[in-house]
Design a protein around this nucleic acid. Sequence first.
DNA 1: CAGAATCCTCAGAGATACTG
DNA 2: CAGTATCTCTGAGGATTCTG
Lengths: 145, 145
Amino acid sequence: MSSGKIGAARADVLRDVRRKPGPCAQWDSEETNFIREILDLVGDKWSVLIIGTLAEGPLRYSDLADAIPGISQRMLTLTLKHLQRAGLVNRTAYAEVPPRVEYSLTDLGTSLLSTVLDLAAWSANHHDEIRDRQRAFDAEATPRK
Amino acid sequence: MSSGKIGAARADVLRDVRRKPGPCAQWDSEETNFIREILDLVGDKWSVLIIGTLAEGPLRYSDLADAIPGISQRMLTLTLKHLQRAGLVNRTAYAEVPPRVEYSLTDLGTSLLSTVLDLAAWSANHHDEIRDRQRAFDAEATPRK
DNA sequence: CAGAATCCTCAGAGATACTG
DNA sequence: CAGTATCTCTGAGGATTCTG
């Protein structure tokens, strides 16, 4: 579909994307899908953690389970399948006597990693500030109680 | 809390974050919260759209509703409140006869915008590639039917 | 106009047990 | 080891109606 016209720029992406004339600029439903699509991919609870864990190199299923405390087998399997389906991770099964399966980032996954890292960096940078503001907001909303 | 040690770098953020020794590097639960926190903030269905819409300038409630097709009043109100609580958007109410309320990005919100735009750009750039891979994956999984 | 309040639904996600 | 198969439950999110 129409990917070229948007991809080039960075700061102008959304400006470029919202161009509907009228009383107020409107999102095109096709264009919101770009955002929605990637959000469905990495906006969930585990995808980013998996991608981040795989950043250092290939890992086996059980290694991932150990590296990401709290994830259930179901969610690990499911999320890996989503990421694999989207082409972000590779699944390599070795036909050995104790079965061995390794997951690794694809080039596509690696390219996403860097922008995800920016988000993580922003998150770490403004973590304290956000918590403070939230606290202040809650204090104002609930004077006493 | 510990924000300085992580914030400086970019590409090393997650490497820096996951440092637990042992059989395999493990996420610290406190550190996963950084990611989780920002994901809860912008990983949902509407936050990014709202932030992107406000990028061009302040808008009223009804303007936002018009600019973001498909959003319900409930979700618009709720998401705005979340973003306001986190200090990403300002809410300015004018005491006029027809009530007027304007929402705008704070500096914090603007700083997040640029990294979110990167994500949107990545999404737009790789949209086609991902769809192709997903199609191929599905075709392989379901030979015929 | 700018929401608040309610009701309802169905995917996301956890726990557990089983299998090639 | 590397998953699959169920069962269940919570809560994000939509539709609708009411209000300052």
